[in-house]
Design a binder for these strands. Structure first.
Length: 95
DNA sequence: ACTATGACAAGGT
DNA sequence: GACCTTGCCATAG
């Protein structure tokens, strides 16, 4: 993991507009990473100052330990989850 | 060097 | 849709 790549990931996550979301894999792809786990690891370690709540799994289900907080924050931005799951088809950020 | 673990994903059943 | 198996890659022991 070069610092340059880390910066790219951080930049991408920061640029996600409120009301939109991205999957870990999407962020990874845009940042040039080969594995989505890298993104998750980054957030767990160095993502405390980023809008991490706009990043979730490809299926629209957030990670278990943060699920409650995540859905609450998204709900505050207008992202409505259906039974703990966000409909990516509608909220997925495409620029 | 090897194994286990983790904010994951894709493909098969 | 749900569930299981593989692949993935950095870190920790």
């Amino acid at each position: 993991m070069d610092d340059e790549t880390v910066e790219r990931v951080r930049a991408i996550i920061c640029s996600i507009p409120p009301g939109s979301v991205l999957a870990y894999g999407d962020v990874a792809a845009r940042a040039g990473l080969r594995s989505a786990r890298q993104v998750g690891r980054l957030l767990s370690e160095d993502g405390h100052d980023l809008p991490w709540h706009r990043v979730l799994r490809a299926s629209g289900t957030p990670a278990p330990h943060i699920a409650h907080e995540q859905l609450a924050r998204l709900r505050a931005e207008g992202v409505l989850a259906k039974d703990g799951r966000v409909p990516m088809r509608e909220y997925r950020w495409a620029d």
